[in-house]
């Protein structure tokens, strides 16, 4: 099952510079595992050690944000197109305070401070 995945500049070091790669899987989790097998380390930039989607990236299936499709459980079909973008966010508030303000979103674990790892 072929799924086209568009990779942002910041993650292309994992894909040998490729902007578009192919993967397989019937859920987002399966797709990310498949991608990580071919592009080692990519998973760590998409999923937190706690197993949630990283706040620093947005992942879309076709035209929809996966956070509205069940996040990592989102279903995929042959021919779907997945787009990964860096989340654009920030602001004057300190990170911990920002995380608290954003609240505990089940799909958006905010307690992620180790972006530099991996």
């Amino acid at each position: 099952m072929a799924i086209e995945v568009r990779v942002p500049t910041i993650l292309r070091s994992y894909t040998g510079g490729s902007k578009v790669v192919e993967g397989a899987g019937d859920t987002l989790t399966a797709l990310i595992d498949d991608l990580d097998a071919k592009h080692s380390g990519l998973k760590g930039r998409l999923i937190t050690p706690e197993g949630g989607l990283h706040r620093f990236v947005n992942i879309y299936i076709n035209d929809e944000d996966v956070r509205f499709l069940g996040a990592l459980d989102a279903k995929l079909s042959d021919g779907d197109s997945v787009t990964i973008l860096p989340a654009v966010a920030g602001g004057a508030l300190g990170f911990a305070a920002a995380a608290a303000l954003l609240g505990p979103r089940s799909n958006r674990p905010a307690a992620v401070l180790d972006r530099t790892k991996g």
Partner: peptide, 8 residues
């Protein structure tokens, strides 16, 4: 926060 998120 800006630094953590800077992804471009």
């Amino acid at each position: 926060t800006d630094i953590s998120f800077a992804g471009e």
